[in-house]
Design a protein around this nucleic acid. Structure first.
Lengths: 213, 213, 213, 213
DNA sequence: CATGAATGAGAATTCATTCAT
DNA sequence: GATGAATGAATTCTCATTCAT
């Protein structure tokens, strides 16, 4: 895509950033289709003519917003990789991270899927993003399997998709659909479910009554 | 909602059904906003004037399509409730059911969320639908907890949301995003993860090597 | 090009014809670029939405106007071919015909050339039209040459282009630029010049004074 | 017209000339309406803000381009007037000149007619230009008539318009529409046709066979 | 009931022109 | 003088909806 204006002056850079920001907010609030170019312009405080100085179309704007968001999420996914040595703690940290990363952009990322239907560009972007998270999850599980800490019968990729999806989906229900829950409780549950699902032994202190007998 | 025409004649009933069916397909394929009344009419083989004999607006059509879909899913969720006595088998049956129910309508249901942004009507529909599945999951878990077969520390509702979300989300990734997987493998993994996540004793035969030593 | 509407009803056919007529007039009066779709609609007495029921764009309308005009001119070029046996009279008849054919559409045909620059479609149409007239002229000249009535040294095609151009251009100057002249005088001059230019002997009764001496 | 800037500095003069040149080329290539100020500026290598330092509007630029072109053509029409004493050679020289003058600017001059539709200013310019050529042709013919070398029955002005139009129109067909022809052949034919059309005695050596018998 | 012509509000986009830097 | 950001009037085109036949 041709970036219409390199925004060579500082004023230009400011305007461009304002439009990007306004677009981000507008898309988040109302969804791709419902956003009018003018909405974005009003929010950014510029005339609609100015919009076209910086972006060729609504789609172009969305593309840049999307790239920025995906970039953020990539970045977030990397932070804190070198966490604890304790597997359970690592899972907990990852879940917290995951939840927060999606918290910031849940609605927008969902929107990529709508936008993705037709085009293909956003679809690819979205798949790449998801793949990063999936791969991280799969790699983690594989390591645990090699160490004998997780059920070796589980397919790492499939499992990562499923458990990762659990977190992603919960983030959506929690943040977008307003399901009430404290972050601590949420992370605690997600981690406990995840850890025990893969067979991590010391996943929880729970001991079945019968065993105790 | 005022149903514009009770479609009293049999010809009328046929036309109405054709529009409903055409709408279902069109929404599924292209998404709410991208569908034009004309697309639906062409697909149904009627003139676009006729559309308004049966539906007051595009939204009205979508509303009826949505209600039909939700009805189907409600129905599907009830079927086979009285399955096996074995908890693991019950979970497996539920997951298979769940997966299939979403398989049929995943794209449309997702669309409810887009459409929901506006007036809240579809949003409510969606919440009610989800609630049915959540409640079933929560009830099942509570029963297992009472029987001492599942971790009593887990919050039934939260857990049901998370694990139900895992299934729902996987259905989406699998069917809409094209992740490759055999249904058997998928159901097997989902069930294993679900069962072990809640601490169901005989969830899987896996025993950690060290323990075996 | 897809004709947007076959205008199956008589009302539709009337509206379509009105738009075509209005377009013809508007293009003729103001030129392609200066005509707004709305001008055409107002003139035709329909809303601009209706315009798009029948034509996909201004260019599409112009295309149909152009085809109609070219068709008319083709038709006009054929009429009266079987005229007199006297070569001079034949040339005169052809010139009168030529002048009248261009009289009706001079401005529009000129417009094709503007419109032709970019596209190619109108350019081809125009070349074909011109070719018809050129070929007729060339064939006529060739016959006269074979009969020994015209200078055999003249290239028929080139000559036809030049003398045909003389008539076409004069039509433009006369009709569009307002040069004053009576049709009789014009036809008389054009014929006399044309006939004598190709060496047709009895082209004019004029005898050079010296010869008379 | 108020010339916005006298371009007092040498840098200013250079910029002004660059814009004029760029405008000339752009108008020639794409036509008046299709040219955007930005195209001209890019071609001239200046920012579009600068344009308005030198020209008040697109029309003003076109006006200056037009005046320059017309000036050139006036100049060209004068050159070589004092040629040979032989009438046929004089006509040949004039035709060659005519053809070359139009060759250089045919497209732009045609454009004057489009642009003329609006305010009449360019139309007047064009008429004046054409008048120069017409008058020269008419004067030449009148002289020949007085000398008994051309048909006295011909109206000088009308004849000059017609034969001049033949040359002008051929220039257009040849150069703009791509009709293939060598300049020599073209000038030879034009001259022969022109000379014989007005009845110039020794116009061509052709003698009808019958006469030769 | 069915048809399809007509409508017009609304959205995207272009581009000549102005103006602060 | 030069720059390029900002403006907004003007234009094209879409599509849900109405209505006469």
């Amino acid at each position: 895509m041709i970036v219409k204006s390199p925004a060579s002056t500082s004023r230009g850079r400011r305007t461009r950033a304002a439009l990007l920001q306004a677009g981000h907010e507008a898309f988040e609030e109302h969804g791709y289709d419902a956003v009018r170019i003018d909405d974005v312009c009003v929010r950014a405080g510029v005339s609609h003519g100015t919009f076209y100085t910086y972006f060729g179309s609504k789609e172009a704007l969305f593309g840049e917003v999307a790239e920025a968001v995906v970039g953020e999420m990539f970045a977030a996914s990397v932070v804190g990789t070198a966490a604890s040595a304790d597997p359970y703690a690592r899972i907990e940290a990852a879940n917290r991270l995951y939840l927060r990363a999606w918290a910031a952009n849940s609605r927008l990322v969902r929107m990529f899927e709508q936008a993705a239907t037709g085009d293909g560009r956003f679809g690819r972007l979205l798949l790449e993003l998801r793949e990063v998270f999936v791969r991280r999850g799969a790699d983690g599980l594989r390591r645990l399997q090699e160490e004998g800490l997780a059920d070796p019968a589980l397919d790492p990729r499939l499992t990562a998709i499923m458990l990762g999806g659990m977190v992603e989906h919960f983030a959506h229900v929690w943040l977008d659909l307003g399901e009430q829950a404290a972050e601590e409780t949420a992370v605690d549950h997600l981690t406990r479910l995840w850890a025990r699902a893969i067979g991590l032994t010391d996943a929880s202190p729970w001991v079945r009554p019968e065993e105790g007998a």
